Amino acid sequence: MFKGVLLGFMAFAAFALSDAFVKLLRGSLPPYEAVFFGAMLGLTALPFIKGPGDRWRDVVQAQRQGLWLVRAVASAIGSISAVVAFTALPMAEAFALIFLLPIFVTILSVLVLKEHVGWRRWSAVVAGFIGVLVVLRPGFRVLGIGHLAAILCGLSGAISMIALRLAGPHEKRLTLYGAGMIGSLLFAGLMMLADFRWPGLAQWLFLLGYGLLAALASVLLMLATQRAPANHVAPTQYSQMLWAVLLGYVLFHDALDWPMAIGIAIILGAGLFTFVREDRVTRWWRRARVV
Rank of each mutant, 00 (worst) to 15 (best):
S218V: 04
A234V: 14
I107W: 09
L152Y: 03
F196V: 06
G139I: 09
L143F: 12
L143I: 14
S28D: 07
Q63F: 02
V105S: 07
F129I: 12
A150W: 07
A96S: 14
I264V: 15
A217N: 10
L207Y: 06
P199F: 12
L111E: 03
D58L: 10
L136W: 08
F275G: 04
W258F: 14
Y249S: 12
I77H: 01
P47Q: 12
A234C: 05
E278R: 10
S75W: 02
I267M: 11
T282K: 13
D58E: 14
T236C: 08
A62W: 12
L6I: 10
G269N: 13
M10T: 13
P235I: 13
H253G: 00
A45W: 03
S123D: 00
K3P: 00
W204G: 00
I266P: 09
L6P: 03
M222G: 04
L155S: 05
L201H: 08
A94Q: 03
W68E: 11
F86H: 05
F99H: 13
G139N: 06
L29Y: 06
M1Y: 11
L251V: 07
S28R: 11
S81A: 15
F273N: 14
H232W: 15
F99C: 05
F15N: 01
R173C: 00
L216E: 11
G131N: 11
V219H: 02
A127L: 15
P169S: 09
L242F: 14
S18T: 05
Y32K: 01
Q226R: 15
A74T: 06
A14E: 06
G211L: 05
W122E: 11
T225A: 01
R120Y: 09
G8W: 10
I267F: 13
Q63S: 13
G78M: 11
I49M: 09
V105I: 15
V105W: 13
T225E: 05
P169Y: 04
G8Q: 09
L41S: 03
V233H: 12
S75T: 11
T44H: 01
M241H: 03
D254G: 00
F15H: 09
G183V: 04
F99A: 07
I266M: 15
A11E: 03
R197M: 09
A14R: 09
F206Q: 08
F275Q: 12
A39Q: 03
A255G: 03
L143V: 10
R289S: 10
V117D: 05
P229Y: 01
G8T: 10
T274D: 04
A39R: 06
L6R: 04
L207K: 05
V281P: 04
V110R: 12
